[in-house]
Design a protein around this nucleic acid. Structure first.
Lengths: 140, 140
DNA sequence: ATAATTAATGCAATTAGGTTGCATAAACTA
DNA sequence: TAGTTTATGCAACCTAATTGCATTAATTAT
């Protein structure tokens, strides 16, 4: 898994100051494979203020550690993707799975080929998000 | 385009009572090709209470006239898909395009083949959403 | 190691979206 | 047209998102 030193290295690489909140939140995303919402963090880390968690998420978003996962529920969900923590490159193509029973959202392997879709004339694609919903292995 | 009689027929087909709000909202979705949020409706139809608009959207959702479009912003967006108003069948696979400049979200032709993605063992897919972001013809 | 600098945190407060209950009004049915 | 059923508007509440500001903590320079 990851040591505290690993986490610090990741933060430094992204020019983020090392704080307790950031270390805890990063560990949480690394340990749990699923995506998390602001509310999840608030429940998990009652010792931090909502606003602090909100800004922690934003700082991770801005520096490319996390990305937002589109969903239908009306509250943003954040995920850490597989390649995110090592290189400086941030992939804009993602494949996510959302379980309709337990609600868990997780990132699937990004190495799967992303489909080509033909766009109307004059349109330019920048990123692609594929969201599959259904039953995860626990709920099927 | 659509006459008021057409709109009434659609509502009847879905066992919805014919009301001013429903007619106006349905017309709005039919006239504008893009997807709309609750906020869009509130701006467009100040004569209706926001709860009424909220419930109008829900009744359209329940009856399969509209579907929610997943997005990253944390507020739900609704779209009317091409086949929705005629048959009773509601398609769970959608392809949407979101313009990163003007923010407009629209439904692309659903007849495009939806890609096959291999899921981990034990997972079962029920629906697929593909969201492409980039520049629309107006903004490119 | 300490002081100076810069950024993060916590709190208060605001805005917006989502949601429910209830009384009233409108739409359908007999 | 009366009776029944459903939609609407209003009040109210909850959660998420967001900003300003004073305080505290982390980094940098001495």
């Amino acid at each position: 898994m990851f040591t505290v030193e690993d986490l610090k290295t990741i933060l430094k690489k992204h020019n983020l100051r090392i704080t307790d909140c950031r270390l805890d939140v990063m560990q949480y995303f690394l340990d749990e494979k699923s995506a998390h919402s602001q509310g999840d963090l608030e429940n998990r880390f009652t010792k931090y203020d909502r606003v602090t968690l909100y800004r922690t998420l934003n700082s991770f978003l801005d520096s490319g550690i996390l990305h937002k996962i589109p969903n239908e529920t009306g509250s943003a969900t954040y995920g850490l993707c597989h390649d995110t923590c090592s290189p400086d490159h941030h992939d804009h193509n993602h494949i996510h799975f959302k379980c309709n029973s337990c609600g868990q959202i997780e990132c699937l392997d990004e190495k799967q080929s992303m489909p080509k879709v033909s766009l109307p004339n004059g349109y330019e694609a920048e990123g692609v998000n594929l969201i599959i919903d259904g039953k995860c292995a626990n709920c099927a």
